[in-house]
Nucleic acid binder design. Structure first.
Lengths: 197, 197
DNA sequence: GTCTATATCGTGATAGAC
DNA sequence: GTCTATCACGATATAGAC
């Protein structure tokens, strides 16, 4: 996003390597126990070397999540056959990137809970973006008649996000929880209440 | 729960004081930045003194949350007039105990994400208890006909929990989010799809 | 049973050498 | 652009005072 280094190939590659290894370390130890030193050691640098690429531990975590969001956009936009399917596919995909789920859950809770957290704004904007994307999904489904119109759309959008977030914690505690099936159940509750049932 | 000390009045009072002050410090700094030293200083002890009452920082956090759950039970059981109202009242009450919401969000995410976390089992059991309680609520509502029967009950129970948990993070980022109104919207989606609509 | 003093070790961050 | 050295601060373990 905001490269702190030049655009030399070597620096960019190192930066990408740190992002990948950082995620790896988080996945193994959790966000709280993931240390800059450990990441540095694996990438062949000292802690100070890592901080040269990322201002702080916090910024590193934030950028790992931002990179994930960029990659996920492709999955989200594949809304086949229903408008919600892109979102459900994303939740399914999450089961294959445990470390990211873990980082997201821990780090978003930390950032939200502290008024001066350096990543607080990042998450506020992320939620706003997600709300806009899901509002479009809900409105598309209302337009094609696959869901009803007798509910509060912004509330349902927030519920779709909250359900996914909350289910991630339940899933981490018990991998038998099927996150996308659960959100799909929520989606089906939105079915039109007129005829056709 | 498992008092590490005797039953002398002085020890019990100090223990209770540490729990209260611990929550206070968490509320100000977030769980991650809440230190045993800070809690100890405010309560007039050294860090080792605090550890005498609570084996570790983790155990202290867990006991703060367990104490909250005990107190909350009373609110949850007041299901007036609908079976879900006790749960909704709880979410409303949460807006008045920001520190607890913050601790719960951060600490549950941390515990869930790490397989060897000392509080992992605590949260697994807490979720199981909550599932049992909410299953009873859903079944009671189905019995009195206020909600439908054409959905997966365990899935909806998990959704009710996940929605509440996920909304807490959204609420911390933006206090205008009305958590109980959102979950009430989810509940209303469960209304029977036959006649009476 | 209650608590302090002390020591060890790990942490993120920084300054300045190379 | 990367290092070494160092800082201030954290959790925790032990020994023992009272």
């Amino acid at each position: 996003m905001t490269p702190r280094t030049g655009t030399y190939a070597k620096g960019l590659a190192k930066r990408a390597e740190i992002l990948a290894v950082g995620l790896e370390v988080v996945a193994e130890n959790g966000c709280r126990r993931a240390t800059v030193r450990e990441i540095a050691a694996r990438v062949g640098l000292t802690a100070a070397g890592v901080v040269h690429y990322f201002e702080s531990r916090e910024e590193l975590f934030q950028e790992i999540l931002a990179a994930r969001d960029d990659r996920d956009r492709e999955i989200f936009e594949d809304k086949q056959p229903r408008p919600i399917d892109g979102y459900l596919r994303l939740l399914e995909h999450n089961t294959r990137v445990r470390g990211l789920v873990q980082l997201y859950a821990e780090y978003s809770a930390e950032a939200a809970g502290w008024a001066e957290h350096p990543s607080r704004v990042f998450f506020q904007e992320r939620f706003d973006q997600l709300r806009a994307d899901l509002t479009a999904v809900v409105q598309a489904a209302q337009a094609d008649g696959s869901i009803g119109r007798d509910f509060d759309v912004p509330a349902v959008v927030n519920l779709l996000i909250a359900a996914a977030d909350g289910l991630q914690v339940q899933w981490m505690l018990d991998h038998r929880i099927d996150m996308s099936a659960h959100v799909d159940q929520l989606w089906r509750l939105l079915a039109p209440r007129t005829a056709s049932e």
